[in-house]
Nucleic acid binder design. Sequence first.
DNA 1: TGGGAACAGTCGGATAGCCGACAACGTTGC
DNA 2: GCAACGTTGTCGGCTATCCGACTGTTCCCA
Lengths: 230, 230
Amino acid sequence: MVTAEQQHHAWLARSFGRTDYLPLFERDLDALASAGEYVDKYPGTHLFKEGDEAESAYVVRKGSVELYRKRQSGSRVVTRVGEGAVIGDIAMFQNRPYHSSAKAVSPVKAFKLDRVKLIPVLLDHPRVAMRWLISGLNQLEATQRRVIRLMHRTVKEQVAEMLLDESDPYGEVQLSQASLATLLGASRQSVNESLAELRDAKLVETGYRMIRVVDRPGLAKVSGRGEADL
Amino acid sequence: MVTAEQQHHAWLARSFGRTDYLPLFERDLDALASAGEYVDKYPGTHLFKEGDEAESAYVVRKGSVELYRKRQSGSRVVTRVGEGAVIGDIAMFQNRPYHSSAKAVSPVKAFKLDRVKLIPVLLDHPRVAMRWLISGLNQLEATQRRVIRLMHRTVKEQVAEMLLDESDPYGEVQLSQASLATLLGASRQSVNESLAELRDAKLVETGYRMIRVVDRPGLAKVSGRGEADL
DNA sequence: TGGGAACAGTCGGATAGCCGACAACGTTGC
DNA sequence: GCAACGTTGTCGGCTATCCGACTGTTCCCA
């Protein structure tokens, strides 16, 4: 029991940022753990939906979650997050409805924290509140970086970078080109053309609903990380 | 003395988000006020520069601050913030160098909070830490909205929206077209062309370093807020 | 008061990416 | 085994935007 619990604590601590100058103590983690519970979600099911009352935040423990928002013309993917991400906390703290929907794209295990239990815990454990703050700010920074990255980059560069980010340990990305296009906010045809060029350059191989990365350094070069911003 | 101080406290409370379900108490604000001091900056001077050690965060009390980052080819504006904004806190909490520069674009009064003084205060006053957290998350949400807003919109639509956001009470925007273009991530020429069309449509008037909004509803229509995303 | 710097306005060429359309291929279910 | 459907691959036309260049205007300061 001790082992599993300690592992759990270590993971919670990792999710909330760097541990070097403000260590979390055991009692903090105990408190945080007592304010929530694990939930499992199958691919395609929702953790929460846009417009629902935001009673909980989730910390993703396993799997991948897609955040998207409805518009009158279809839906728009905001981002895709994996292990360690904290989602739904913005709306929860503001006590307002969720402003996006969260859907599991692979089998997801998440730690669900209810507002009514969480807030007293944070008030009693300022270190945990500080951690959460730092975690949120890290996310803010990442989003700002994404804004800069999206601006003034060709579809080909964006595709290259996305493949580097999304490829699994075997170097494969299990996505249709249409989904990839939606994630990048580009058209399917443009993505297809970019992939064709990358294929001709022997950087990737393409198949049905699958893209395999065969030359990571080459892709990184195409993605233009050289002139990238921090 | 009491009046000015109370005003100060009320303003600090406002900057850190909604006050309805988690009120800040006097002692919290006293503590926060004691952890920093006011600084004044003339237009063109820096609050901090990219790469400097991040020892302080700033809460903008008056004026307008531009955040930008250097790249090998010139600089890129990340965002522009006004009264109530909290800047530099990300790098400060992470104990890393600032990753962007902050320059005053008008006479700025800001409340400077030093890390060494601030962190003990936050640990002693969990409500203040919660406030800060909520403030940061609000900013995160605004940034995510900006990402969505930027995607798939013409320069003309973006210009219209920017003018609505940035115009002062007299309906004027004191910006060169080049600065406007940088803020939008577009070229000066495209912005100029869009402004010419808006001028022809009697929605704005243009002058040297100045644009005056004369028809807000018309501009809102052009900006396409109808199909906008909350 | 004059000259230089910053800014506004405009043109033409080049191009990246969108859109519609369509054929070929893979997958799934009956 | 075949039909329906989702996916990939590719084409041509179209438009928004970028880029370089140039002119005329406004501002600022010596």
